[in-house]
Amino acid sequence: MIKVVFLGPPGAGKGTQAQRIAAKYGVPHISTGDILRAAVKEGTELGKLAKTYMDRGELVPDDVIIGIIRERLSEPDVKEKGFILDGFPRTIAQAKALDQMLEELNMPLDRVIYLNVDDEEIVKRLLARGREDDTEEVIRKRLKVYREQTAPLIDYYSEKCLLVEIYGVGDIDEITAKIEEALGLKG
C-alpha cells in the first residue's frame, strides 16, 4: 500500500510522475482537478457546490475541496491500495485537514515527494506546452502564489520527517526511479 503526496511548483512534473507510479503499482492517482471535474459531472452535493464557484471563475473554498477529498479517500480502492495525492494539499490548513482525515481513516502518510524545479526551468517548460493561457506573466504569477501558499508545506512535512526532495529535472525514467527508491519500491 502506498500513501503519498506529490508536492512541487506548477510544471514540476507532479502529474506525470504520479500517473507513472499509480499505473505501475495499481495505486489510485487522486488529482484535485480530476476529482472536482468528476464530482461536478456526477452531480454530487459537493460537486454541485463546487460548480457554483467554478462557474463564477472563483477558487473552490477549502471546506468544499476537503469534503471532496474526504469522500474520495473513503472509497474501497483507496482503503485497499492507498493513494497518490496530486494537487492537494495546497495550504497548511489543507495539510492539517488531511492529517485529521488520514488519522480518522487509520491511513498515515508514508512520504511526501517534493519535486524541486527552479523557476526558470518551470517557465521554459510551461511556455513550451504552448497553451494560450500560459504566458510568462501568468506563469510567474502562478509561481508567486505557489511560493506564498504551497511552499510552506515543504517545512511542514519536513518537520514531520515525511519529506523527500527530488530534483525534478532530467530524464523522466531516472526521476521515476528516484521516487520509487524514496518510496521503498522495487524499480
Rank of each mutant, 00 (worst) to 15 (best):
P108G: 14
V117G: 06
I122A: 06
V64R: 01
D118I: 09
Q94N: 06
D62E: 01
G87N: 09
E120I: 11
Q94M: 05
Y53C: 02
T91I: 10
E120M: 13
L109T: 05
L46D: 05
D86A: 04
T91Y: 09
D77W: 05
I84K: 01
Q94K: 00
V123F: 11
L59M: 07
G47Q: 01
V64M: 03
L85D: 08
Y114S: 07
V117N: 04
D119I: 12
V112F: 04
N106I: 11
M101T: 12
A97R: 02
D55K: 00
E104K: 10
Y53P: 11
L46A: 01
L73H: 01
E71I: 12
E104D: 15
K79N: 08
D119S: 13
P61C: 05
L49A: 15
G67D: 02
F83P: 08
Y114N: 10
N106M: 13
E58Q: 13
T52M: 11
I65Y: 14
Y53G: 06
V123I: 10
I84Y: 05
T52H: 08
P61H: 02
P61I: 01
Q94L: 08
V117T: 03
I66N: 08
L102S: 10
F83R: 00
R111G: 05
K48V: 07
Y53V: 00
P89L: 10
V64T: 00
A93P: 05
